[in-house]
Simulated scan of single mutants.
Amino acid sequence: MNRQDVLITIEKALSEVLERPITGLTEDTALFDDLRLDSSSVLGLLMTVEEATGIAVDPDDLDIDHLRTMRSFADYVEAALRREEVTS
């Protein structure tokens, strides 16, 4: 999965979780400030991305900084995908 695929997956997951079309996001889009995510929508986002990508989100690994922007969350997802490849 390349970077663009990761960003599209996150965008689709956000649309599903927020129950409204989410399009045209940039890597600088702030998930909390711009999209108004809250704790329950973050949980839904994580579960939806896990399902779409096959990664397992480890709560001990996840930090609020991973969820600040599209860029930081995409970086987290890419790192998790690399870990999955190594362990597969």
Rank of each mutant, 00 (worst) to 15 (best):
T23S: 14
K12R: 12
R3L: 08
I64Q: 09
E85N: 12
V57Y: 05
Q4A: 10
N2W: 02
L43F: 13
A13Y: 01
S40D: 15
D34A: 04
E50K: 04
E27G: 05
T29M: 07
V6L: 01
T53C: 06
L81T: 08
A80Y: 06
E85Q: 11
R82Q: 14
E50R: 03
S40G: 15
V17W: 00
H66D: 09
L81D: 05
E16N: 07
V6R: 03
E11S: 05
E78M: 11
L43M: 12
I10V: 01
T48C: 11
R82P: 11
A30W: 02
G54R: 09
L81G: 10
Q4G: 07
T23F: 12
L7E: 08
R3S: 08
I22L: 06
M1G: 15
E51R: 11
L62W: 04
M1D: 12
R3A: 07
S72E: 03
A74L: 10
L81A: 10
M1P: 12
I22S: 01
E50D: 06
E78D: 12
S40V: 15
D33G: 15
I55Q: 02
L62K: 04
L81M: 10
T53K: 08
T87E: 14
I22A: 04
A52C: 09
F32A: 14
V6W: 00
V57K: 03
R36K: 06
T9P: 05
L43I: 15
D38Q: 03
T29K: 00
D5Y: 09
S88V: 08
P59C: 05
T29I: 09
T69K: 04
P21Q: 10
L25M: 03
M1K: 13
L67N: 02
